[in-house]
């Protein structure tokens, strides 16, 4: 049986959200202290970021492929559990953040060794994008609509499919897979720019989901779920910015 909050709330461009909602009054009888708030979600995002930085620091100082791969696998499992069991988000979202920190710290060391200074550039640009889009959303400069959601979700799915086919082609003898994805030519850089833009616009959908979730007073654990969805998008955005910067410096 699907969790009530997921049955209640819909899907964002971020694949962590489910769909269907029966009505706004569904959570009206929850006490105020048990309802999702904007402040709670932002604070929990802060906790997740802190945990991610903590393990990224460990992985940065002790570069070890086992830590990196372990982090990636545990992160994937924690993400799947959070998506299908949002009631557990309070414990699985911190595990996801800790695991992703291990993965990101390791991968950042590899990029940093090749392109000194790239890590701080990628971190600065990721958080810069987050803050800029938050202001654009809060002030109403960017107004997400159903068509906006359709385009972002579709583009995200298209990119996901492209990456999946690329991995399959690489794994089964296709050499580098889909060539231009990794190239530093005009197409390769253009592709990375498009992917960074799509990843960034997913943040707008996350902001809207969190805003409406707090307006409707979803259960408290959805704060962890909202924070987790932001983390998923931020991790993706950071990795894509890292790839884009590496292409520009090759």
């Amino acid at each position: 049986m699907r969790h009530q909050a997921l049955n209640t709330f819909g899907r964002s461009g971020n694949p962590v959200f489910g769909q269907k909602f029966d009505g706004d009054a569904q959570f009206a009888d929850l006490p105020a202290s048990q309802k999702m708030t904007l402040e709670g979600t932002i604070n929990k995002t802060g906790i997740l970021l802190l945990l991610c930085f903590l393990t990224a620091g460990i992985s940065w100082n002790i570069p070890n492929p086992a830590l990196m791969i372990g982090g990636m696998v545990i992160g994937l499992i924690a993400a799947m559990v959070t998506i299908f069991k949002p009631t557990m988000a309070g414990s699985t979202a911190p595990i996801y953040a800790l695991a992703q920190g291990l993965f990101l710290g390791g991968i950042t060391v590899i990029f940093e060794a090749q392109y000194p200074g790239i890590a701080v550039q990628a971190i600065g640009l990721t958080f810069g994008t987050l803050a800029s889009l938050l202001i654009c959303y809060k002030t109403g400069i960017i107004k997400p609509t159903e068509n906006f959601k359709l385009m972002i979700v579709s583009a995200t799915a298209g990119i996901g499919l492209l990456y999946f086919v690329n991995i399959m082609m690489s794994a089964f003898g296709g050499g580098e897979g889909i060539g231009f994805i990794h190239s530093n030519g005009l197409m390769g850089i253009g592709f990375s720019l498009v992917v960074v833009a799509i990843a960034a616009l997913n943040l707008v959908l996350d902001f809207d989901f969190i805003e409406q979730g707090s307006e409707k007073g979803l259960p408290k654990h959805m704060e962890w779920f909202g924070a987790f969805s932001l983390m998923v998008t931020l991790v993706w955005l950071y990795l894509e910015i890292l790839r884009l910067l590496s292409k520009l410096r090759r």
Binding site: G140, E211, Q212
Partner: peptide, 20 residues
Amino acid sequence: FGKFKASKEQTDREDRINWT
């Protein structure tokens, strides 16, 4: 800014995403 509600321009419009 994350802790503040979005502006009326954002919240009071007909074409908001209907997550419900």
